[in-house]
């Protein structure tokens, strides 16, 4: 890489792009955190982002306002999540298979509706889609470095990062959050004190739908104002990786999202320089595997130390 000036790659805007790239993943992650804290392994996040992105466009065209689009997206995602919940919780279908089914169903549905509702194939772009406008934060925007970094983003970016705190509050500071987590961690314990696990799982899935709706509308109504087939580009899977990486804790998962966002942003930049962005795009998935391995190694160390203690106690006896 001798010929390439690294300072041209690692610029301020790279970090600003990081926030932008992390946003949709972060929304899906926050949604997935709810379902996974309630004990549902939701592999349908990719589908939910897809549905959200599509209906955001529809809503924006229909109402002429990005907020209307957001509303459409949220409602559509919540309905999808409720459908998931009914099939899983009432009809007792395997959650993983339902999630995979949702991914397939959603890709078919959005493409189908794209043709029948918006009369285009694979791709829809139009002046009728009203996207969000960027927000300049007064005062901060005038501060040299901070301004470039923090100001001038789309509102959903701020909402995403603010939501991390919100989700943290909900999960760790309210009775609702306590009940939700208890259902996921020890269902018997929750039931023994009168908490209804099914109800909590439904609620968690609804919240999951809400956040995925936000994530989807960011994809199609902010930086880009269009819908295209496959525009989610695996962000749902990334969110799943982030949840795994962060053990479904909001702040730890945020870190994962930022890392993934940075990898995305860096990949974009490298592409401009004709460097292999694909390798960088592999990083989020590889790092998830590395983290899983790392924590398994740490667990085994602890166990080994304990066994050694037992063993020495035993030999002392004989």
């Amino acid at each position: 890489m001798g010929g390439i000036d690294l300072s041209r790659i690692f610029t301020l805007s790279l970090f600003a792009t990081t926030f932008r790239m992390a946003t949709p993943v972060l929304f899906a992650t926050l949604g997935g955190i709810f379902s996974s804290q309630a004990g549902i392994f939701n592999v349908g996040l990719e589908a939910l982002l897809n549905i959200g992105a599509f209906f955001a466009v529809v809503g924006s065209v229909n109402t002429g306002s990005p907020v209307g689009g957001l509303l459409y997206a949220v409602v559509a995602c919540v309905i999808a999540c409720l459908f998931f919940s009914v099939v899983h919780l009432e009809l007792k279908a395997n959650a993983i298979i339902v999630g995979l089914a949702m991914n397939i169903f959603a890709s078919g549905m959005t493409n189908y509706l794209l043709v029948t509702m918006l009369d285009s194939t694979g791709f829809y772009q139009s002046d009728l889609i009203i996207g969000f406008k960027t927000v300049e934060i007064p005062f901060i925007k005038d501060i040299p470095v901070l301004g470039d970094l923090l100001s001038g983003h789309f509102p959903l970016v701020y909402i995403a990062f603010f939501s991390v705190w919100l989700v943290y509050l909900i999960l760790y500071k309210t009775p609702f959050g306590f009940h939700l987590r208890s259902v996921g961690e020890n269902q018997d314990a929750a039931e023994s004190v009168g908490i209804n696990p099914k109800k909590m799982r439904y609620l968690s899935m609804i919240l999951c739908g809400v956040f995925c709706g936000f994530g989807g509308s960011f994809l199609s109504l902010s930086y880009l104002t269009l819908f295209s087939e496959g525009m989610t580009a695996g962000r749902g899977w990334l969110a799943l990786a982030a949840i795994n990486f962060g053990e479904a804790k909001p702040v730890r998962s945020l870190i994962a999202c930022l890392v993934f966002g940075f990898a995305d942003a860096l990949a974009l930049r490298l592409q401009q320089f004709g460097l292999p962005s694909q390798v960088v795009l592999m990083l989020p998935y590889v790092s998830t595997l590395v983290v899983l391995l790392g924590s398994a190694i740490a667990d085994e160390r602890k166990r080994k130390a304990l066994n050694a203690k037992h063993r020495s106690a035993e030999t002392a006896l004989t």
């Binding site: 208890s182 020890n186 314990a189 004190v193």
Partner: peptide, 14 residues
């Protein structure tokens, strides 16, 4: 019937 990641007090009042 305890939730491992809760504090003892939180489990008591769950």
């Amino acid at each position: 019937m305890l939730v491992p990641s809760f504090t003892l007090a939180q489990n008591i009042v769950l």
